[in-house]
Amino acid sequence: MLEALLSLLILAGAIFTFIGSLGLARLPDFFTRLHAPTKATTLGVGCLLVASAIHFSTQGEGLSLHEVLVTLFLFITAPVSGHLLGKTGLHLQLPRLGRQDDEDHG
């Protein structure tokens, strides 16, 4: 039962990480590609870390929650690097697809 849950979490995490990188490889412009890594970190690595925490906590050597720290760190840093990358893209005026609301910022 526990093993099935762990396997499910691990596979889900790996699939989301893969889809994140797939998006990075095939999406058409920089700003749409920017969305890919935020996905890979939040859900993909999150699932893997939860699986790891559960696995090592049930080994009989007491709780092992330090994986939470990596998750927490990624949840805090991923939006910041995403924001800064987006700012850089705007600054360098990379080509972008789709409609724009305002042109006079930055």
Partner: peptide, 19 residues
């Protein structure tokens, strides 16, 4: 996340990105 995974796996031409 599930929604975006679907978008990535779908046709990129069908995306409607916007600022």
């Amino acid at each position: 996340n599930l929604n975006v995974a679907q978008l990535i796996l779908g046709k990129p031409e069908r995306l409607r990105p916007a600022f």
